[in-house]
Measured scan of single mutants.
Amino acid sequence: KTVKFDGLQFDFDNPEKALKFALEVAKQKGAEVHIHGDEIKIE
């Protein structure tokens, strides 16, 4: 899975870790997590 935000991109082999990371970043930024297939966007 790939996590994208602020023009940055982070690749994870483990989908659970990717989602956990995305949710943590979103919480800190006050943003929402959007999942599109293998891509997780924080907006």
Rank of each mutant, 00 (worst) to 15 (best):
P15G: 10
E24L: 00
L8N: 07
D11F: 14
D13M: 07
V3M: 00
K17M: 13
F12H: 01
K4Q: 07
E24P: 00
F21E: 15
K4D: 04
D38C: 15
K27W: 06
K20T: 03
V3K: 04
I35F: 09
L19Y: 08
K20H: 10
H36S: 11
D13W: 06
D13H: 01
K1Q: 09
K41H: 15
D6Q: 06
F5S: 01
F12I: 03
L8Y: 09
L19D: 08
G37H: 05
G7M: 03
E43N: 08
G30C: 15
E32Y: 13
F12M: 02
K27D: 07
F10Y: 10
F10Q: 03
K29S: 11
F10K: 03
F5A: 02
K17Y: 11
D6V: 00
A26E: 04
V3I: 05
A31T: 07
A26M: 04
E24S: 04
V33I: 12
K1M: 14
K4E: 06
E16N: 04
F5M: 07
L8A: 04
G7D: 07
H34Y: 11
L8H: 06
F12T: 02
A18E: 09
A31F: 12
F5Y: 11
L8Q: 08
I35H: 05
I35E: 04
L23E: 15
E43D: 08
F10I: 09
G7R: 04
E39V: 14
K20Y: 07
D38R: 10
D6G: 09
I35K: 03
K29N: 11
A18G: 05
P15L: 14
I42K: 03
V33D: 05
F12D: 03
L23R: 05
K4T: 12
E43Y: 12
T2D: 01
I40H: 03
E24K: 01
F5V: 10
T2E: 04
I40C: 10
Q9V: 13
V33W: 02
L19M: 10
V3T: 03
A26S: 04
L8I: 06
K29V: 13
D6C: 15
K17E: 15
I42N: 03
V25D: 06
Q9W: 08
K29L: 14
Q9M: 08
V25I: 13
F5D: 03
I42D: 02
G7S: 06
A22S: 00
F21W: 08
F21R: 14
E43P: 05
H36T: 11
V33G: 03
H34D: 04
I42E: 02
V3A: 01
P15Y: 14
F21T: 15
I35M: 10
K29F: 14
F21K: 14
A22H: 02
N14C: 15
K4I: 13
E39G: 05
K1S: 11
V25F: 08
F21G: 15
K4Y: 13
I40L: 08
K17R: 08
G30N: 10
A31D: 04
H36W: 11
I35T: 05
P15E: 12
K4M: 12
E16V: 06
G7T: 05
A18N: 10
A18S: 02
D11T: 12
N14F: 04
F21L: 13
I40R: 02
F12K: 00
Q9G: 05
A31W: 14
F12A: 02
N14L: 05
G30S: 06
F5I: 08
I42H: 03
E43L: 13
D11K: 10
D11V: 12
E24F: 00
K1N: 09
A18C: 13
A31I: 08
V33C: 14
T2K: 08
A18K: 08
